[in-house]
């Protein structure tokens, strides 16, 4: 019984962090209609940024967000502006520009391998003041860094929803995602909107990076581990849907955590994919995806 409860709590906490990582991906897709294959690498950049901020400045990992998140925003902004925009422009008459996928795949390989060249293949773990700290409620053990990651997920998602609903830029982003041509006719600079949406999507990876480093290690291909999860979560929840990403994340986290109580953990990956396929079979647009579009 204890381990079941423990499994539920842990699955929800780690799942919410997966969900946060998937949020950036779903936002970028929802707006630009581009599947960002470099998403995991952006997470890797976020983790390295967080790692070095904590290591060199000696600050608390959550305080490091003040530096890491804006840095990642500009990183994403520039990546969209310099690398992806030219390709998008060349394909401006295509609704879902597939060439961009190839470009983002290239970015993924370049980022991972440049990191490998600069920092080497070694695993880096940093001991922060909250690493390995826990709350104990009776027999229930809750990892503090995971709990704070859960909080960060809620805060970031609420902030994102508020931003999209109530700010002018947020409204422009939604407009451009609904119909880029109509939005352009209304005087919205769609490429600026894309830059900002991409920047936000990447900035979220900065938050995830800071939330992960107290308990996870950093290495050049760390993104790949989360990449596949993010794609499953995003499609499971519905492409472009914010609640879909969060709920999808928690579902995957719970399956991994609870499944392992009843079978070897090698098999839980299988269960994730079975549930994934079952959902697509019943509801092809994903749990929260609308039939039309976002």
């Amino acid at each position: 019984m204890d381990t079941i409860l423990q499994g539920i709590v842990n699955g929800t906490l780690i799942g919410s962090i997966y969900g946060l990582a998937a949020l950036g991906l779903t936002l970028i897709f929802g707006v630009i209609k581009v599947i960002n294959f470099a998403h995991g690498s952006c997470l890797m950049v976020g983790m390295y940024a967080a790692y070095w901020a904590v290591k060199l400045l000696g600050i608390h990992p959550y305080l490091a967000m003040v530096i890491v998140v804006p840095a990642l925003f500009f990183f994403g902004y520039l990546m969209q502006d310099i690398v992806i925009k030219p390709v998008l422009k060349a394909q401006s008459d295509v609704r879902e520009p597939t060439e961009v996928i190839i470009v983002t795949t290239g970015v993924w390989y370049i980022l991972d391998n440049v990191t490998l060249m600069i920092f080497g293949a070694e695993y880096r773990v940093i001991q922060t003041s909250i690493s390995g700290k826990i709350f104990e409620l009776g027999d229930l053990i809750i990892s503090k860094p995971k709990f704070y990651g859960f909080i960060a997920t809620i805060v970031v998602s609420l902030a994102l929803v508020w931003f999209l609903k109530y700010t002018k830029m947020g409204k422009s982003i939604r407009a451009a995602s609904l119909d880029r041509e109509a939005a352009s006719l209304m005087g919205i600079n769609q490429y600026r909107v894309y830059n900002i949406a991409f920047g936000i999507g990447t900035a979220i990876m900065g938050v995830v990076g800071c939330a992960l480093i107290p308990f996870y290690y950093v290495f050049p291909t760390v993104g790949v581990i989360f990449d596949v999860k993010c794609f499953i979560i995003v499609v499971l929840g519905g492409l472009g849907s914010i609640p879909g990403a969060l709920i999808g994340g928690v579902i995957v986290g719970l399956i991994e955590s609870m499944g392992a109580q009843f079978m070897t953990s090698t098999w839980t990956e299988l269960i994730v994919y079975v549930v994934f396929l079952a959902v697509l079979f019943v509801k092809p647009a994903g749990l929260f995806g609308s039939k039309l579009d976002w």
Binding site: Q6, N10, I14, E256, S257, A260, Q261, S265
Partner: peptide, 12 residues
């Protein structure tokens, strides 16, 4: 080996 979370294994 590529698990992102090994808490379930630790719990078992």
């Amino acid at each position: 080996s590529t698990s992102s979370d090994l808490t379930p294994v630790a719990l078992k």
